[in-house]
Design a protein around this nucleic acid. Structure first.
Lengths: 226, 226
DNA sequence: GACTGTGAATCTATTCACAGCG
DNA sequence: CGCTGTGAATAGATTCACAGTC
């Protein structure tokens, strides 16, 4: 079983399922539930039980026949894999609609993310505090980054500015960029870029809706003679 | 070549790449460029040329040896696949930080989406107009949906309310739900649900950063004797 | 009996290799 | 030549089938 496209020792598809496992097992822990089976978890998340078991195998968790997996152990193991048990310092660039929304999202702490500063071109925003996070002018980017020691940047600037700002971030030593701009970034390979393109999800939904609408219509008379 | 996981006649992975193709070819059209090769497109998007050709084959586009593909033809074909050449009526439920940001996003028109109305529990919001879109109280959901004829709903409510609101949407005849709540929705199968879980992208980035940090550290003395 | 754990089989997606064409 | 188009090969992910264990 040669698994590829690995992140560290985990298949990327496994990593993508970890957040939903974590949400469920955290909830169970809060409810005082101590064990859970792969079957129950799969049912709740729309996954096959064996897939859940394989995933847990990858993150090094082993369960007990008859009873299942220890909820607490699962929480800790998943948090460890993602480093969501400690808080990673981050900055956000581009305090527009989306940037503001992300600054206001209370859930990031539980996802290992602490936004320490924000930056925006607009001089009216600089000096303000948005959802508790101070906003600095773009000119201060490099000097502020030397102070706040952020490892990650959340990029929510306009598409036209994306590449240029990303390059400045890379040069300032940012290690990972969470890219909400929808533009592909061209950066030195030591910077890890994660694209978060909202248009992809919309495209899948649009295509599904269109496919169903087309299927409901009478088919366009496919009476080929042969 | 038996491709599965199809949406209509397209592999889902192809559909997921269509938005980035579309962005690039629309830009080229605006610049007056008439043809483009699969190699050039692949280079711009970080894809293999052959993948681009396969994708274009699926959407029924055929190019010319030596020159490449007609930019205009590509734009129209991709828009057609996604139904992004006409505007689909939608409503948005939950005018919090994220909901407000989405209401303010000017790009949806180019993605075939027109938000006609928004809804929120908060009575102070009802009656207001946010980014040009009227907000109604949640109690009016069913009656308003009878008037606006929306096909799609954007769900940006708090996780606790997600399932209940989604059920109301399904009963009101909504065909597709774009689910930003991070909670899995349990709905009758005729409703198409597209989950847009921001935590997945963050998990992948977190895991990559953690993996690299771990790789840089001296390995924890793996001197097994056998 | 009700679970886990895992090799083998299957299914899906990407990439290779090359024929065909303007 | 410099492209496209596609069958064949490979790589990756899921699912099956079943052995093992408490």
């Amino acid at each position: 079983m040669a698994y590829g496209y690995m992140i560290g020792s985990l298949p990327i598809t496994t990593v993508q399922r970890l957040p939903s496992y974590l949400r469920v097992v955290r909830e169970m822990r809060q409810q005082g539930r101590e064990v859970v089976s792969s079957g129950r978890l799969g049912e709740m998340l729309g996954l096959e039980a064996v897939q859940v078991r394989k995933d847990f195998g990858f993150i090094g968790i082993t369960g007990m026949p008859k009873s299942g997996y220890q909820v607490e152990e699962l929480v800790l193991a998943i948090e460890h894999c993602l480093c969501w048990n400690r808080v990673r310092d981050a900055v956000l660039i581009g305090v527009g609609h989306l940037g503001t929304a992300l600054l206001g999202y209370r859930g990031f702490a539980a996802h290992g993310l602490g936004i320490r500063a924000a930056f925006d071109l607009n001089p009216d925003l600089a000096g303000q505090v948005v959802h508790g996070i101070p906003v600095f002018p773009m000119d201060d980017l490099e000097s502020a980054l030397r102070r706040v020691q952020a490892q990650m940047a959340i990029l929510t600037v306009a598409p036209e500015a994306a590449q240029e700002v990303a390059l400045r971030l890379a040069q300032a030593g940012i290690e990972g960029i969470w890219n909400f701009t929808g533009c592909p970034l061209n950066l030195p390979p030591q910077v890890i870029v994660q694209d978060q393109d909202i248009a992809i999800g919309l495209a899948v939904l649009s295509a599904k809706l269109s496919a169903r609408t087309r299927a409901e219509l009478p088919l366009p008379a496919e009476d080929a003679p042969d």
